[in-house]
């Protein structure tokens, strides 16, 4: 049962990700990307990581993509005004993302054993267990991520206020 669900979700996520890259209209791309996020959230639920699934939806679909859509609407791009990119950009993009794909495949090639080990702790994705792990075993990376976010916030305020007196 969950195998068929996994296959359906995987198919949907790959298909919508491709449609996101291939569609000409940027607003369509954003909507396809949101569909991809939902399919990935479904995979998290299958892995019993409900907290991660809902946070994925809240953060990516609920906040980041709203901002993407917001900017696209403010710019109001359409076929007439959209800047036409030259073929050199397409080649550059293909090479860059192709090398990223190579790195990902190389990194994940030997990881099948690790996945089998994680599967033993089936309830690690529930919020109580996740919180405990974050504040005990991984507390240093967690706090460093917090500092990173603070730095990003300060940077965003600085960029927003160009005429700020330092």
């Amino acid at each position: 049962m969950s195998q068929y669900l996994f296959l359906t979700l995987a198919l949907v996520s790959v298909a919508t990700a491709l449609l996101m890259v291939l569609s000409r209209n940027p607003v369509h791309s954003v909507l396809y990307l949101i569909a991809t996020f939902f399919a990935i959230a479904g995979q998290y639920v299958l892995l019993n990581a409900q907290f991660l699934a809902i946070v994925h939806i809240i953060v990516y679909a609920g906040a980041i993509m709203v901002l993407f859509l917001f900017v696209l609407m403010l710019l109001n791009l359409n076929n007439a005004t959209e800047p036409q990119k030259s073929n050199a950009w397409k080649v550059t993009g293909a090479i860059a993302s192709g090398s990223l794909l190579l790195v990902m495949v190389g990194a994940l090639k030997g990881s099948s054993a690790a996945v089998a080990q994680v599967a033993h702790k089936a309830d690690v994705g529930l919020v109580q267990n996740l919180g405990r792990v974050l504040f005990t075993d991984f507390v240093v990376p967690f706090e460093i991520a917090g500092i990173l976010f603070l730095a990003a916030m300060v940077g965003a305020v600085l960029v927003g206020k160009r005429d700020i007196k330092l």
Binding site: I58, A61, V66, F70
Partner: peptide, 25 residues
């Protein structure tokens, strides 16, 4: 009775804006 019920509500509240944005655009 999902164990993240209140976050589920927050998630769908945050998605509510899409209908308005898509329709308005």
């Amino acid at each position: 009775d999902v164990n993240i019920g209140i976050l589920y509500v927050m998630g769908f509240v945050s998605l509510g804006v899409y209908g308005i944005m898509i329709g308005g655009w």
